[in-house]
Every structure is written in C-alpha cells, then in structure tokens.
Design a protein around this nucleic acid. Structure first.
Lengths: 245, 245
DNA sequence: TAATCTAAATGAACGGCATTCATTTAGTGA
DNA sequence: TCACTAAATGAATGCCGTTCATTTAGATTA
C-alpha cells in the first residue's frame, strides 16, 4: 500500500526510468496544487519560462499531461499558483518596524527583485483578480496597514499602492533589458542629444564598467534608474500626504 | 503586366475570392515592411493580439504564410514593426512649448494611452534594442532634448526617462485590469484593512459609479492612480534636479 | 455488502501555432 | 546569355495547450 510502487520492469542501475503506470486512479494521489507549484518553480529555475510547458511539467511529475487538468483548469492557473507562491517571498517586514518611507523602499526593492526573475508573471499579477491568491492578499494587507498607520486615508491608499506597483512592474522589465537597449546603431547621428546622454549614462560615483568585480549580476543602470524613480515617487507621495492628510 | 491580375476563375459578383496565384516571384512585389505593418495593425484592431498570427497576417495580405519570412525574420520582427509605428503616435509636442513638468505630464499620458491598447508590445519595447526603430529613437531624442533644456545633466537624463517609462508601462497594464481585481472573495475577512480600503477606493470628488455617463471607457481608478503616481514622481524628480543641477 | 458516484490517472487524439525547406518564377547585373 | 538573387507557393515539421473516452480506486449510500 504505502510502498510507493516505483517498480521498473528491469531496474537498470541508477537511472530512474519509471515503469509505465497503468491507467486508472492510483491508490495515492500523485498530484496536488502544491506539488504542481513546486515542480513548476523548479522547471522555471532550470530552463526559464520557455521551459514551463504542460508537457514538461507533467513529465517532471512523472504523469501524463492530461492528468494536470484534474487539478488545474489551464496553464494560466499554473502561472497563478506560481505567482501567489512567489508573492510570499516579497518582504513586507519593514512595515511596522521602520518609518513609512523606508518601509516602502524596502518593500519595493524586494518586490522588484522577486519578479525581475519572473517577467511572464507580471501580466498575471497585473491583470488577474486576487481571489484565491492568499499570499498575495496577505501581502496587500500588510502594505495597506503600513500606509494607514503612516496616516494615509482609506480612500487613497489603494491608488498609492497601485502607482508604486506599476512602477515596480515596469522596473522589473528594465532589470532584464540588455546592456545595449538604447544603442541607436546607424541612426545615432539623427538623435545626437539622446545618443550623447546614453553614452554619458552611468558616469556616476563608482564608474560604469571600471570595476568589473563579479560583474554585479544584473545591470547597474537598472538599479540607478529604479532608485531614482522610487525615491522621487516616495518623496512626491509623502508630500501629497502632508498637507491634506 | 501592370494589370494587377486579380482574375477570379469565375468572378462571382462582389466577393473578392481571389484566384490562387501560381508559385514563383510575382511581377510586382506583394509585400513590404510597411504593408505588413499596416495589415498587422488592422488585424490587431479587429481581433486584438490573439488575432495577430502569421497565418492570419498572410491571409489578410492574400499571401502564403511563408512569404512573410522573406521580409521579416520572425513574428517578433512584426511586433517590432508595429511597436515602432505606434511610437510615432506618442505626443512629444509639449516639449519645447510647455514647461518641463507639464510637458512630461502630457507625454506620459499620451505614451500610456497609446500602449494601453497594445500590452503585448510592452515586453518588446522594454527588452529589445532600439536599433532600427527610427520612430522610437525620434521620440527619445525629443524627450531627451526637453530634459536637457530644463536643466538636466546628460548623466542623469536617461535614468530619469527610464524611471518614468517604467511607471508608464506598469500603468498601461493597470488600465486593462478588471474592475474586481482586488476582490479578495472568501478571503476578505483575513485582510480587513485591505478590503476596507478597496471598498473605499474612488470615494473621490465626482463619486465612483454615481454618474454612469457613457461609462467612461477604461476604468476611472486607473486614471486616478496614474495621476497620483505621475504627479508624485514628477515632483520628486524636480526636487532632485533643484539642488544639484 | 452491493451498487453508485466521484476523483484521479492514462493515452489518443485535435487544432493552432511559428517556422523551415524545396521548388518555382521573375527581375538584375556580369 | 548566364548566373545570381528576390519573392512567391505549398508541403511538412514539431511543439503546445487542451479535450475526451476510458480505466481504476476510493467514498457514499441503499
């Protein structure tokens, strides 16, 4: 019964070449939402989202593709599962322990960093209702509390959060932009100011590529633009809050 | 020769049921980048991006799907063509005629409005190099000039533009979010502050759904969040600019 | 306990998709 | 005139998400 029945017909050493399971409901359920979520996340970690296909997901769970549809209505459902799981990794701990501006800053950075590695989920977050996405709702609750505690009115919190989120989503894309995204190529002469500004970008303290270090993972420009925009928006929002409560 | 050869075998009245063209290079080229772009745009206007397939595109141009690949390397190329065309619709005219903050505001609104109807292009804009996207480069040049004229340094313009663009992309998604995106459903009790704030959203001057009018096209909440965030970021950026030039 | 219902698996399809390739034809330059 | 290249057709490929009939096992009910 509990023997897991991993019997290969002729168990060749090592290679987990599973025996073909015969049709019909198995004694122990092979699939569940959380198993599917974990497998999907693992697949994405290996091959990215191009590797996340229903067939590959099924194979990684040692199951026929059609079996997935007993637990999930569509591939979108899988994406929603993954999205909600990842939302649990967004750090909201600064709300309640740090002042509002700092907390927003920490939350936003964490949020962006989590989803910069999961761009195909952004349309899912931005467009799908949060119903049945418990971790997502938990995150929103924590952030809302942080805003209310800082003096925000109930009527304007959501707009402020949405504005910040919009910026975060766009910034997550930017993290994945190639280094030469603003390379005008042969058309550079027709856009002299722009080209010069692109060339002069990152002439910041610390230099551009002067210090290779370990090459700093993602692009450094993206971080600079993110910090600039985030600080600006936080300051601007704080100013909005000030006069009228 | 120049007769266009639209000869149906038995020309039944009206219905443009084209005769099958025989294989081989036609006397007059049937395709070009601009024809492909226009056809793609028309298709998208009719059926949205789900309707934009290479097969449908070919059919609308009265051509075999494989013929497209003589003018375009991939479907991504088609998307890039469309993207660059649309970028020409983004209004940059306020730069040079209005003060910086106003110009940025007008540009950002126009930018968001154009691409809110073309969400699948956002990954294309955000991730693909601008090389060979002349209208896009032209847009950036105008915006860069506007920033430089307002006193921005060449080293920080691009970061500021990228920050604003990130916000714009995210906001374009938000325009398309369903009304009930923040509906927590059965989990609402577990997130009381959030749920209350969602319910209290849009209790602004003018009311929420009090005045149906023509139902105002896209969601009103999206506009409120966009304005709030945009004004905040513009104010914050202007403050950054002030002290250090 | 027997009969029925439902949950969860298989495996064979399906239609749609982007893309490739061999082939054909027409213009172009040596 | 002859090669070369550009631009079309049409058949084929492989992948992908999804559906459906079928099978088996557990759960519920008579």
């Amino acid at each position: 019964m509990g023997s897991e029945g991993v019997g290969a017909l002729t168990a060749v050493a090592g290679e987990a070449k599973q025996a073909r399971r015969r049709a019909g409901r198995p004694p122990q359920a092979l699939l569940s939402s959380s198993r599917i979520t974990r497998a999907a996340l693992k697949l994405v970690g290996q091959d990215g989202y191009k590797g996340l296909t229903m067939a590959a997901l099924a194979r990684s769970l040692n199951v026929a593709p059609s079996a997935l549809y007993n637990h999930v209505r569509s591939k979108q459902d899988v994406l929603l599962l993954v999205e909600d799981h990842l939302m649990g990794r967004v750090d909201v701990s600064a709300f309640g322990t740090r002042p509002w501006a700092e907390a927003v800053c920490a939350w936003a950075h964490s949020y962006r960093d989590v989803f910069a590695g999961h761009l195909p989920l952004i349309p899912v977050i931005a467009l799908l209702p949060v119903t049945n996405a418990p971790a997502t709702i938990t995150m929103y609750e924590a952030v809302t509390r942080g805003f209310l505690d800082a003096g925000w009115s109930s009527e304007s919190v959501i707009d402020a959060i949405v504005a910040l989120e919009s910026f975060i989503y766009g910034s997550a894309y930017d993290v994945n932009a190639p280094e030469d995204i603003f390379d005008a190529g042969t058309l550079a002469p027709s856009a002299p100011n722009f080209s010069a500004a692109v060339a002069g970008r990152g002439l910041r303290a610390g230099g551009p590529v002067t210090v290779p270090e370990v090459n700093a993972g993602p692009r450094n420009d993206a971080d600079a633009a993110f910090s600039l925009g985030l600080n600006a928006m936080i300051a601007g929002l704080a100013a909005t809050l000030g006069p009228q409560g």
